[in-house]
Design a protein around this nucleic acid. Sequence first.
DNA 1: ATTGCGAACGAACGATCGTTCGGTAATATG
DNA 2: CATATTACCGAACGATCGTTCGTTCGCAAT
Lengths: 192, 192
Amino acid sequence: MSELVKSMPEAAGTRGRILDLAVQIASSEGLEALTIGRLATELGMSKSGLFGHFGSKEGLQLATIEAGAGLFGRTVIDPALHEPSGKPRLRKLALGFIDYLESSVFSGGCFWTSVAAEFDNREGPVRDRIELHVGTWLNILTEQAKAAGADDPRQLAFELFSIGQGTNMQYQLFRDADLFDRARETVERILP
Amino acid sequence: MSELVKSMPEAAGTRGRILDLAVQIASSEGLEALTIGRLATELGMSKSGLFGHFGSKEGLQLATIEAGAGLFGRTVIDPALHEPSGKPRLRKLALGFIDYLESSVFSGGCFWTSVAAEFDNREGPVRDRIELHVGTWLNILTEQAKAAGADDPRQLAFELFSIGQGTNMQYQLFRDADLFDRARETVERILP
DNA sequence: ATTGCGAACGAACGATCGTTCGGTAATATG
DNA sequence: CATATTACCGAACGATCGTTCGTTCGCAAT
């Protein structure tokens, strides 16, 4: 791992504690396995007390997505903003993503992979938020690929994005730590 | 799409009809959304009648995975076996996978992506079967990369696998058909 | 001191989950 | 013809789901 990443969870308060757990469950078992009763039990509180913080199951799912987006942003994107725009920042984004997978910020691997696979064929606000956040990640990659002078920025972003997805799926299934170095090798090779 | 792919579903019989639907639901909403009551309703039969074919929910999930594996094999792997081992077969495998995504053999995109994301952090026979089938796919890619004379066959397989995963996730979320050509472009570039 | 409010609780609801059971009709086997 | 097997059904089960309700507690403002 190229650098120690501080991944502070959610802010304080009961709601924050709920979402810290929710985000881990969602990443490893999905947003439907994220049950109100289960959350309440594991946190030692009542279903109705927990429910009140979100108003509905969908409200809980949306809040979990925003919490996941916050943690992803603080872990992967924010550190890259300290690098100058262009190739250094793009490199930091791509390698930071691999570090994010390797350091298991989410116990279930990439948060977005889990929730997107579950909701990409449904409709409604949950799917919309997922699309927006993943779209933002992809847009940042594309912008920085452009700033880095890539011939086809969108193509480069596509490939960097894909390396991340492939690494995540293979690691989650096979637990082969060599994958992270393979991923870094590919990233270094395709950077402009 | 480089070729018309015949993707004959399951064999005849009630069990086959069940699994044809099960496989589509699993690919687009996951193996837990694959409910016995829902399947029975959509197929116009009773829960208990349907249940009898599989003995348990886990039995249904395992049967669905085998049915998905069969369809994947017939769609992606079998056609490539007509190409000579080495680069031609590897190329056919990689491009065939992209065709498989583009032609929506599974309504929810790549069958393995969906079920792996859902179960890769659990334990038990369902997870084991998924790992085995995806591992087989990866091994075939690695063997053919070796036969094609790649410097690092495992690395090439890793990259081809990743392109497929990235294409699937981006297409499922953004429905941008350009992605398939981007994927083919990358495949042609990294083949040895 | 009183009021108001947010947080949390326990109990209950209707719905759905996976599963079991007993029965019926059709088919195959002897 | 008798028998066993298979395919399917309807009814019911306990558990869990998301959700609603009324209540209680503690704290802050008036």
